[in-house]
Design a protein around this nucleic acid. Sequence first.
DNA 1: TTGCAATAGTTGCACTTGCAATCAATTCGG
DNA 2: CCGAATTGATTGCAAGTGCAACTATTGCAA
Lengths: 175, 175
Amino acid sequence: MATTGKPVSAEIEALSAVLGTDASKLLDPTVAKAWIALLTAYGRVTRALSSELMDSSGMSLADFDVMAQLVRSEEYRLRMSELADAALISKSGLTRRIDRLAVNGWVTRRRCTEDGRVHWATLTPLGLRAFKGAAPGHLAAVADRFGSALPASEMERLTRDLLKIAAKNAEPINS
Amino acid sequence: MATTGKPVSAEIEALSAVLGTDASKLLDPTVAKAWIALLTAYGRVTRALSSELMDSSGMSLADFDVMAQLVRSEEYRLRMSELADAALISKSGLTRRIDRLAVNGWVTRRRCTEDGRVHWATLTPLGLRAFKGAAPGHLAAVADRFGSALPASEMERLTRDLLKIAAKNAEPINS
DNA sequence: TTGCAATAGTTGCACTTGCAATCAATTCGG
DNA sequence: CCGAATTGATTGCAAGTGCAACTATTGCAA
């Protein structure tokens, strides 16, 4: 869904007829339905949020995520690698994303004086202002498109379940 | 976040300090946590599944999804537009994906004799064989990375919740 | 009929992505 | 100290993506 970007979709159902009678042994139909539901929910919500954010603030979802990481960091700065891990993107992807954010004047990149291999990505005052301008609308959109679908207690249960799934798949992006 | 493809990540927490005291009015912390959990779970699982599928079968997750749609269709074929909607990708994206699948000999594209505007994408016997080869491993991977995290009853609840979220955001991809 | 609107797909374009190779700086073993 | 291994980040490359503009075909109205 690239969000834009990355492809988001899938269907696994009804493969039994093709694969043979034991397809449900490979993937429990209950699990298949849940998996499709996850892909569908994710795809629809992110697609909508992405275009709303781009229209209102000229910022991609990935831009927002990176800037959000910096906002919550000490002195509004992070090493490139730390930032890549935090934002769940590859190192090369981050390099180029920071290039673009730097062109906007939202982030600066400076070599670390103590260790010349390290580069700090730092949110600028202009970037902070852009983020402050974008965040309320984006957060409201998340509340509307995602948050309003379930009551709070159910939302907490959803969180616990999703975190269990995430925990089962904990591997760093940048091997 | 994705599969290749799409950026998958985010953090919304801890914005109150930056946005002012009322950030939690914009987005309930409960919702924020759930949203981050969704992005994280989706990103990690799809990333892993994507590379496993590519390694084992030379097929992207998007390829698999498109072929799965054809497998479950009448006569293994679908119109381009139907297929794009079903696979949740744009029309142009599908055009090029079918190009690539056709190069592999997995799908053919033929103009419809009754309505010259329509083109049928049809899974070939070779494509069906490739799909049959890929599906067991992929389904097992879904079962392992996603399905094994929760008991069945909880999985059903998760499905219901996710479908509610999806329903709140039901809009066709191709406007 | 004829000509305009609607529909189905494809293409031009600008961008984004990740992997592998590479460059640069630091650290560590001898 | 010095060269090899390690670590941090950037770049070449080959994809993949969506939007908007375009082509082709059909339908419909006068």
